[in-house]
Simulated assay, not measured.
Amino acid sequence: MSTRRAEYKQSVHEFSESIRDATPESVGDLLAEHYRDDTIFHGPAPIDRLEGRAAIESELWKPLLTAFPDLEKNDYILFGGEFEGEEWVCATGNLVGTFENEWLEVPPTGHATWLRYGEFHRFEDGKIAETRLLIDILDVLRQAGYTLFPSLAPEVVIPGPTTQDGVLLDEQDVAESAKTMDLVEGMLFDGLNSYEEAGLDGMGMAEYWHEDFGWYGPAGIGTTRGIDGFQDFHQGPFLDAFPDREVGYHDARLAEGNYCASTGWPAVVGTHLGDGWLGLPATGNAVDMRVIDVWRREGELLAENWVFIDMIDLLDQIGVDVFERIRNDSQHF
């Protein structure tokens, strides 16, 4: 691992640790330490694309720190890698704070709230030049008392790695990193994309996943355990809804040690052809999905998968305006 990559990982981790002491008035100085002036930001709907550090400050961090004044940012996975000649750092964990003021039109609850995040940062000349960030906003709405869709599986506060070894600030074994990448790429490009030809049972899940693996999905889908749970409560309903979906449109894909991650804007494309997913009728609409995936390998198989889908954006593409529903719902508690 290059000294440069170690510095980049440390920079991302230090930013996370410093959020605890940041305020709406001071966060701009913190951003200036870590971000270029011309950083491009790709975020979740309704924040979406922002251009420049000043916009990231005013549209993301000031509103967050106003809504959650005691906010802290806890990475439980963090690692880096090179993709197509560029250096990236990936992290996931929870933003945690007391919901004291409105955020994204959501009324405050006064309660502790977990904002689950996944992020990729591309570095140039020692600072972040591009960020891709997904926050599970639908889960924030759930914690605020809104029940908008029948969840397919339990919705829980997502745990970090069971091995508690996800923050990789030190150098990792190159051979182990390559082994992790090979396993994930086989699963993505050979296993998942074989559905139309092989069907659900012919996708060879046991070649890639531990029998009792943990799959930690976004709100609306929920968390599953084991191959059967994954297929019954996520993969089967999802493929019924989007039978022609294709995966693998990645803007970055990294592996370091036993961890791998990918992101794409979009990473998955398909057509909404099946009824019933999240209780919704089929629309026939073509959709694309902003996704961040993080995996942990254990031995020869994948043991855990943290999954982020921009559900607000996806639902909008199939005719569901989540924030319009919130504006029209005054009796959600």
Rank of each mutant, 00 (worst) to 15 (best):
L254Q: 06
G248P: 11
Y216C: 02
D201I: 03
A261K: 15
F233P: 00
T263E: 08
T263S: 03
L273I: 00
G229H: 08
D201H: 11
E196D: 14
L254C: 07
W277H: 04
G276I: 07
D240E: 15
G226N: 06
R245S: 11
D228G: 02
Y259C: 00
R245P: 10
I221T: 11
E197M: 08
A198T: 09
D240P: 05
Y249D: 04
N193K: 14
D201A: 14
P237F: 07
E207N: 15
G279E: 04
G257Q: 13
C260T: 05
G222N: 09
H272I: 00
N193E: 12
R225F: 07
H272T: 02
W209A: 00
T223M: 13
L200R: 10
R245Y: 12
G236W: 09
G257V: 10
F230D: 01
G229A: 04
D275P: 07
D228H: 12
G199V: 00
D232S: 03
T263N: 05
T223C: 09
E246M: 06
M205H: 12
G199R: 01
W265T: 02
Y195E: 08
A198I: 04
Q231V: 15
M203I: 02
D201V: 06
N193M: 12
H234Y: 12
T271Y: 01
H250C: 10
I221F: 12
F242H: 01
F238L: 06
D212R: 01
A219H: 13
A267R: 03
A219P: 14
Y216S: 09
G222C: 07
S194L: 07
M203W: 01
G217N: 02
Y208P: 02
S194I: 06
L278P: 13
E211K: 05
F230Q: 04
R245C: 14
L278F: 14
F230Y: 14
E246D: 13
G270T: 06
E207T: 13
G204E: 00
A198V: 07
A241K: 03
Y259M: 01
G257P: 03
V268N: 01
W277P: 02
T271Q: 07
A252Q: 09
V269S: 07
A261F: 15
V268A: 08
D232H: 06
G214W: 10
L278T: 08
T223I: 05
T223N: 11
R253S: 11
F242M: 06
M205V: 12
G217A: 09
N258D: 15
L273H: 10
W277F: 14
G248I: 11
A241M: 06
H210G: 09
H272W: 06
M203P: 00
E211F: 01
L254N: 05
R245I: 03
F213G: 08
A206Q: 13
Y249C: 08
I227Y: 00
T263W: 13
F213W: 09
T271N: 07
H210Y: 06
E246N: 08
V268L: 06
W265G: 03
M203T: 01
G199Y: 00
T223V: 12
L254Y: 10
L278V: 08
Y216F: 14
G199F: 01
C260R: 05
G199H: 00
N258E: 14
G264Y: 07
H234S: 08
G199A: 04
I227T: 01
Q235W: 12
L273M: 05
Y195S: 09
T224A: 13
D275H: 10
G264S: 07
P266S: 07
A267H: 11
E246Q: 13
F230S: 06
D251R: 04
A198K: 15
D212H: 03
